[in-house]
Design a protein around this nucleic acid. Structure first.
Lengths: 240, 240
DNA sequence: CGGAAAGACTGGTCCAACCAGTTGACCACT
DNA sequence: AGTGGTCAACTGGTTGGACCAGTCTTTCCG
């Protein structure tokens, strides 16, 4: 019973992850050609249809460019890949580390969150402001379990981002949340300095209700910046 | 010759776009079940593999959740979809308009761009700073063609975002660039107020070279804010 | 030497079948 | 009536092979 796996991952999903990591890790250099579908199918002993599904997903992630009749070309992910690939980059064994990506994500979170709080104070409805204030109390009464705390905290921020009325912020928020959650120990990292400061959350909700956009932005920025590590970054590979 | 289309879009791509728009447009409500693959294949007169490729992409975009044996469930894109879907949301006939999305994207661009300029001044190498300064001149000498101007301008900003050392910013930048370019008339919208102000670009490059992070951030924010429309937003559907 | 034709690739689509999970109805037993 | 198990009818997952539709390379003829 050394390997009694219950979880079964689809063949095309495994293949997608494998090829994605090869591209992000640099094993498949940009500008080069991806192995032909029939050849990949033979190499991994799977059907060509599974290969096609994986390649189609690579195409959607803008990691490759396929052309009917021609060869499938590997793109430079630094120029084409979208925000949703952050997790994959950390998984690849070359380039930035998980800590690097987590730090970058926290920086982006602070930047977007502060502006979202500002816009929320400017544009959200009175009902939305009341919901935000109520969510602070719900968060304050969340159980001692870190997972619960994390969940209520994310739900609270989601209300603010939704209240900002900016769909780009909302989508980026989604990308950050379910891109980082599985990677970093978010509750532990954020910890007491940010998540447990209920009083600051109350003040932020108050600024939003009072339409004090400037104050909301400053407080949000300060609150979110608490968790951004200030240490200088050390790259693994120092590529480029 | 009423419909002499030359463009041939792959069946799975058409199907993906169609289903995506149905979900984003609300025709397929969240929580409901997506039509079974075999049924979709029969309905559209295509092979089931084409349907599968489309559904697989919907899954990757976090618009649906598929489960082996069970039904494929439609998710709430407001809670799960990532930044790369902004273009699709604008394409859907319900909800936000293209102008709404463009405004949101410009707001996000200003937010990210300002912080990227700040971080670039703090962290980029001397060589990168020199490249940025050189790129300003390349942009200044770009042809009268708006497309060229746009291209050099984007290339210049890409250098700054890369110089910030924040991969999340870089990926978000990618998403914004090739998500908005095909939708909005970016060169026309940005216009003289921002793109043609070479002197401001020179000053920003100077701040970065001089490591004046605060000044770089302020100038970048002001520069990028010029193109953000200030008009209040009017929603089409006023959903929620 | 130039260019057109032929062949060998490439990805795109289809058909038909079967494997592998989930669901729910049905029936025997308690 | 309630409980439990069985089974048939779904669902998605995978396979094989065939063919269409483009691209690229080679070859051969003018």
């Amino acid at each position: 019973m050394t390997e009694g796996h219950i979880r079964r991952e689809a063949v095309s999903d495994q293949l997608f992850a494998l090829l994605r990591d090869r591209i992000l890790g640099g094993a498949l250099p940009p500008g080069g050609a991806l192995t032909a579908e029939r050849e990949l199918a033979a190499e991994f002993g799977v059907n060509r249809h599974a290969v096609r599904e994986a390649v189609k997903r690579l195409q959607q992630a803008r990691l490759v460019e396929v052309s009917h009749g021609g060869r499938t070309q590997v793109l430079d992910w630094r120029r084409t890949a979208g925000l949703e690939l952050a997790v994959g980059i950390a998984a690849a064994d070359s380039g930035p580390t998980v800590q690097d990506i987590a730090r970058d994500a926290l920086e982006m979170r602070a930047c977007i969150g502060a502006d979202a709080a500002r816009l929320c104070a400017l544009r959200c409805s009175a009902r939305a402001a009341a919901e935000i204030a109520a969510a602070v109390e719900a968060h304050a009464q969340a159980g001692p379990d870190l997972t619960d705390l994390d969940e209520t905290y994310i739900a609270w921020w989601r209300l603010i981002v939704e209240g900002s009325g900016n769909i780009a912020y909302l989508l980026a928020f989604n990308s950050l949340v379910d891109g980082m959650i599985p990677v970093a120990d978010v509750p532990a990292d954020l910890g007491a300095g940010e998540i447990l400061d209920v009083e600051a959350h109350r003040r932020l909700a108050g600024h939003i209700s009072a339409r004090e956009a400037g104050a909301a932005e400053l407080l949000a920025r300060e609150l979110l910046a608490r968790s951004v590590p200030a240490a200088p970054r050390a790259r693994k590979g120092a590529r480029r």
